[in-house]
Design a protein around this nucleic acid. Structure first.
Lengths: 320, 320
DNA sequence: ATGAACTATCACGTCTAGTTATGCTTGTGT
DNA sequence: ACACAAGCATAACTAGACGTGATAGTTCAT
């Protein structure tokens, strides 16, 4: 004999106590009259006591029925509050999305993304953290971020996106050319395409850890180990170093598009050409979280061309 | 997209938020793990948003999930309170029963009934109202009483118990002889059985309205109309009037059994013999109200013989 | 690499919860 | 007194919810 009432029973009893008849309650609650009549008899057998008794043409609540009706107000108010909050979350009248992205994105993709998110969903709270891809993925795994915007170098065998652990879903957005930056003083400064092998003896300026790894891998394929004279995470610094003739560098296109090129440098397509992928990563199944869904909808709608990015080929859009 | 959560979802989400995994929640709630897993996916499609996301080996609540979990506490507390109150009512640790009975029962059946009820169910509140059968039935119809203890004279064609309206269930308990009271001075005072027709010229003392009606009907059958000199609802007064030789009277057995007979009267079986029925009346279906069920259980267990009553014949115990 | 812990999915049976149609009871108005 | 309207109960039926055990896939730890 389970004396726990269910929500419908509470609703029915409350409505009956307010309107006096089962039929009227059925009309109000949007059921047929037999539905409520049957539900009540089932509820009464389950509860082991009567909630209503017939009284003339209608019914009257018993003591137990009146008791339930009074509790029903409390319960249903609380449920309605929960429901309303869910509706807000679903409709993005509230909610939070926590975004992590790599530094270069902070001054390019992310501002536009956040502006458009705020515009379309004024009541959505957006948190942003700058983090290199491995850290961004860690934030995602820890539940400290909802959407990570990262990049991958296709040759990177240690790419954390490929790891089988820490379940996440990676969706590519754009491909981003990696360009070669030469000082005007360089012998090849006037060539359009420059073979990397021709720069085997140049001094190199390396960017962030991942970019440095990519540089090494690329040069390795071409059969030489670059001599890295300077290292900095700062793309503007890289450009200035190059302009002073301190070396040559590979830079992702996105790093350039937020900067004005200093005097004395030129941009080239390296041979072999190389590109990295810009992608977002979410927890598996997180597309069903409205704030996340809204964010990735915005992301995929971003126009990459304005930063010199190419949309990722339509074929294959979802990796693990 | 209905954002109203059901109780099980609330329970599940709350338990997950407290114990971290679906499996543990299933163990605690007494379900199999797939049951909860599936219920969650159903709930999430119904609600249109995710409540949990996989996180490594377990799951993590989403923002919506955490929201639900916090509301769940309120809701489930309120439901538990309702449930506890129902359990009290069902177990008669609380509750009320309102009894109405005819005056003669007030000093015979009812005190014993109430004493035994209180003894067996100390937490049950018992209300008692004295009312003649028609009024008692009216109280029942109005919902102002839960159990009416009444009597019927079988010959009474206006017996409200027979009316098709005002739905109620009548269950006979006892049959009660109606006895003839004669003064010692009466010519027939030494006879055992006395024919009513032999009293056609006596002065009659009538009791309550219904008893008076019964007297008239009975005499009518015997072919005379009694001369009614005195009327009173008070059985003791009737006896005293008889003892003073002011007339003869018919009295129900129960009225006698609570009184000590005054000097100068004798009790006889009238011919034709006559009896009335003592019964209880409840609202249809009210047997499922625990307090009512307890009351009628007590009632049927009463030993009528101690008041000179006979159990109603086993055959046919439930009338309309 | 192996095993333990956890979740998801499948196939299946049962019961719940709704529907319409219909009949019975009760109150009301003529 | 009678017919009608309002209300509740019941029947027969269907769809879906809700359990179960079996099983497979992930993830973490040793």
């Amino acid at each position: 004999m389970d004396t726990t009432p269910d929500l419908l029973t509470l609703r029915i009893v409350r409505t009956i106590s307010e309107h006096g008849t089962i039929s009227e309650a059925a009309r109000i609650l949007g059921y047929s009259q037999p539905a409520l009549s049957q539900h009540l008899t089932r509820a009464q057998t389950r509860l082991g006591l009567a909630l209503v008794v017939r009284a003339g043409r209608g019914v009257r609540l018993t003591e137990a029925g009146r008791s339930l009706a009074s509790h029903a107000v409390t319960v249903l108010n609380a449920v309605d509050a929960a429901s309303a909050e869910l509706a807000e979350l679903a409709g993005l009248s509230s909610g939070t999305v926590r975004i992590a992205a790599f530094p270069t994105a902070s001054s390019t993709l992310v501002p536009r993304l956040i502006r458009q998110l705020r515009q379309q969903h004024p009541n959505l709270t957006v948190n942003y953290v700058e983090a290199e891809p491995p850290q961004a993925l860690q934030l995602l795994r820890d539940g400290a971020a909802d959407v990570a915007i990262t990049f991958s170098y296709p040759e990177d065998r240690a790419d954390p996106h490929l790891s089988r652990d820490g379940g996440h879903t990676t969706v590519p957005l754009f491909t981003e050319p990696v360009v070669l930056v030469l000082p005007d003083s360089h012998a090849l400064a006037t060539a359009d395409d420059v073979g990397l092998a021709d720069l085997a003896n140049d001094a190199w300026i390396a960017g962030c850890t991942l970019c440095r790894g990519h540089l090494l891998a690329l040069c390795n394929l071409e059969g030489f180990a670059p001599e890295i004279g300077l290292e900095t995470d700062n793309a503007l610094a890289v450009l200035n170093f190059v302009s002073r003739g301190l070396g040559v560098a590979l830079l992702p296109q996105l790093a350039l598009s937020s900067l004005t090129l200093p005097e004395g440098v030129s941009i080239h397509s390296p041979q072999p050409s190389s590109e990295r992928t810009i992608q977002y990563v979410i927890q598996p199944g997180a597309t069903r979280i409205p704030s996340v869904a809204a964010t990735i909808a915005m992301l995929t709608a971003l126009d990459g061309a304005s930063w010199g990015l190419r949309d990722y080929p339509e074929s294959e859009r979802t990796a693990r």
